[in-house]
């Protein structure tokens, strides 16, 4: 079997008295798409925030390729090859599309303490930025200020930035939310291509996309894992049907 890139053991996070995530364990291997689904407030984003270093866990461990990274800061984790996208678009609104991707790609320099050459003269960085922009479907929009883009396009910028850091492990928090059908299909195809040589943890409410992409699913409800396994197993689980998939589709 392929290498385990991400291993999470009994990870928990409390907010005051609220156990937003409690005792979650999961794994994600190279070439695998591991989808985390669950109703609003289940703790999916909190889980991703702990994996990316945005939030320190209350307890539990996170390992990247065997290395314990629990509690490391977001910048350290990012440099270990983890790229994340945000559910709520988190970009540089006053900058151009190109600059958003370019600064993301620049983060892979050993150091940005370089003072005397123009940033735009870094060839490898520019090329990585252009590749990420093309992959996210924003070709031709490089010069546009992100604030002037549509919501859907801003979501694509979010993806482009995540890709521009050339990560091994992708943590995607609802990448399709707010996208039109066309862009959505395009991003699903992109994720399908990326899956081959990345490990991917995908949080998504769009069940068609989830079942098209996922090799493994974990269902969370109220901070705990309700069920985890292959798509067939999740589809046929009575508990999951009752809690989440059942009835009139508990999307937002």
């Amino acid at each position: 079997m392929a290498e385990v890139v991400l291993a999470v053991e009994r990870l928990s996070r409390n907010f005051g008295g609220l156990a937003a995530v409690s005792g979650v364990s999961l794994e994600c291997r190279m070439g695998e798409v591991h989808a985390v689904i669950g109703p609003n407030g289940a703790g999916k984003s909190t889980l991703i925030n702990m994996l990316s270093g945005d939030l320190p866990p209350t307890s539990g461990t996170v390992r990247l390729r065997g290395r314990d990274v629990t509690g490391l800061t977001a910048d350290r984790i990012s440099r270990l090859g983890v790229g994340r996208s945000y559910q709520k678009t988190n970009v540089f609104l006053p900058f151009t599309v190109f600059e958003n991707a370019r600064i993301a790609a620049q983060s892979r320099l050993a150091s940005s303490l370089r003072f005397f050459r123009p940033a735009t003269a870094l060839r490898a960085v520019n090329e990585a930025a252009e590749r990420a922009i093309a992959a996210a479907g924003l070709e031709g929009r490089e010069g546009a200020t992100v604030a002037s883009l549509s919501h859907g396009e801003q979501r694509q910028v979010e993806i482009a930035m995540t890709l521009a850091t050339d990560p091994t492990l992708l943590l995607l928090d609802e990448p399709l939310a707010g996208m039109g059908a066309e862009e959505s299909a395009r991003i699903v195809a992109l994720l399908q291509r990326l899956a081959a040589d990345h490990a991917m943890l995908l949080v998504e409410h769009d069940m068609d996309a989830v079942f098209a992409l996922a090799d493994t699913l974990t269902v969370m409800v109220n901070g705990v894992v309700l069920e985890s396994g292959t798509p067939e197993r999740i589809r046929s689980s009575q508990a999951v049907q009752d809690a989440y998939l059942g009835g009139d589709e508990a999307h937002d």
Binding site: A74, D75, N90, L93, F95, S107, S112
Partner: peptide, 11 residues
């Protein structure tokens, strides 16, 4: 513009 995202990008 966005220090949080800069950290998240690895800076």
């Amino acid at each position: 513009v966005n220090e949080h995202r800069m950290k998240s990008l690895g800076f």
